[in-house]
Design a protein around this nucleic acid. Structure first.
Length: 343
RNA sequence: GCAGAGGUGGCGGAGUGGUCAAACGCAUCAGACUGUAAAUCUGACUCCUUCGGGAUACACAGGUUCAAAUCCUGUCCUCUGCA
């Protein structure tokens, strides 16, 4: 698993395969986009199909037929977005989160320890500590609270990972943590420093990565990167638009993921070397050019914008597949263009 | 030919005297989406507007009424039964 050390000194874009699949793509198609690592989600996989089933089936990689890298997000973000925002019934305290899945009504518990256990059963290569994610415009007091809890939980995750599984040495897996601190650079810096003193294989910038004007929170991101070692994973969670990735890479981040690349593909916003192409717009109806003339993906080398437009407008699923293939290929090329200059 | 039912915006389809420029769905046209409750969500969708409104509109032509998509008369058209 020496391969994993590449995550510390190369650039990677990891598409989100939240439930163990990049939407609309087969594993073969996923590989062909140049993707080497994916992100799956602990909370979603906890609910379906459940960690025990995944373990019995030999882990998520075997299930998917995926021989690349798998990073499991801890579920901290979902605890925020589903429970804090009251979309799901649940409560959060010092020990973790309890919640009820609205689909079948079962109750679940996510603690620092159980999050690690679940990620182990999933068969992750890179684990993420459970963090206390909140909205970005917090009063300082609450931001501080989230930082304290995030650090405490990170420590518990690491202790559990080492005691129960023998840590990185024995498992060959990497353990990364999440840096919180809302939009307070000083809190971000402090959180990073304390996490570094505990010691992890990577430090992930968590929380929200853009402000209300959709601008990358570069000050907060800088405050973190300035306080973590260079030869570790520096993962900007949820970043982002192509220009945001370039910006984050410029200041030192090297791992990225975002749902934008796949979701926008499904919704008709395609990234190209000539800028954004809105494939659903009526102007595409007679456009016989490929989506991107400088792209050799399956979509661009075989089909016209007009054909893709027609299929999108009529709900042909293969259009979503082709669009996703294109966007992801574009992102992977973007990230590969960065590789030689990774610090 | 006789007897019923009916004709509403691009389409389907509510509404049966005022609160109707007309519910709802579809289609159309835009926009959004950043550790995915997302094949989702938002807005526009007669014309004009100084965004306060204004002008035409519910097959067509008349009429009743302070007021009509809604009531009456005629015309045209459609569907279903019976011949």
């Amino acid at each position: 698993m020496n391969d994993l050390n590449r995550l510390k000194n190369e650039y990677f874009f990891m598409p989100d395969a939240t439930r163990g699949a990049v939407r609309y793509l087969t594993t073969k198609q996923l590989k062909e986009t140049g993707t080497e690592a994916i992100v799956t989600n602990t909370l979603h996989l906890l609910i379906h199909p459940g960690p025990d089933i995944i373990q019995k089936l030999g882990g998520i990689k075997k299930m998917m037929g995926w021989d690349g890298i798998v990073l499991t997000d801890s579920g901290g973000f979902q605890v925020f977005s589903l429970i804090h925002s009251k979309k799901w019934q649940g409560s959060i305290d010092e020990d973790g989160a309890k919640f009820k899945s609205p689909r079948e009504g079962n109750t679940y518990e996510l603690t620092p320890e159980s999050s690690i256990d679940i990620q182990m059963k999933i068969g992750s290569d890179v684990l993420v500590t459970l963090d206390d994610c909140r909205k970005s415009d917090l009063e300082k007091e609450e931001a501080q609270e989230s930082v304290e809890r995030t650090i405490k939980w990170a420590k518990r995750c690491k202790d559990h990972f080492e005691k129960e599984y023998g840590g990185t040495k024995k498992t060959g897996k990497l353990l990364t943590c999440v840096v919180q601190g809302a939009n307070y650079p000083d809190l971000r810096a402090r959180c990073a420093k304390e996490l570094v003193s505990i010691g992890f294989d990577g430090y992930n910038f968590g929380g929200f990565v853009v402000d209300n004007d959709q601008k990358l929170v570069i000050d907060e991101m800088s405050a973190v990167i300035g306080n973590i070692p260079k030869d570790t994973i520096r993962y900007a969670m949820g970043v982002g638009k192509p220009e945001d990735i370039l910006e984050a890479a410029r200041i030192g981040y090297n791992l990225f993921d975002t749902v934008l690349v796949t979701r926008n593909a499904r919704h008709g916003t395609l990234y190209t070397s000539q800028g954004i192409v809105k494939i659903n717009n009526s102007s595409m109806a007679l456009d016989e050019k490929p989506v991107d003339q400088n792209c050799d993906c399956e979509c661009c080398s075989n089909y016209s914008r007009a054909y893709l437009h027609h299929m999108m407008k009529n709900g042909e699923a293969v259009a979503q597949t082709l669009a996703t293939i294109h966007n992801l290929t574009y992102y992977q090329k973007l990230i590969k263009g960065l590789t030689p200059v990774c610090p």
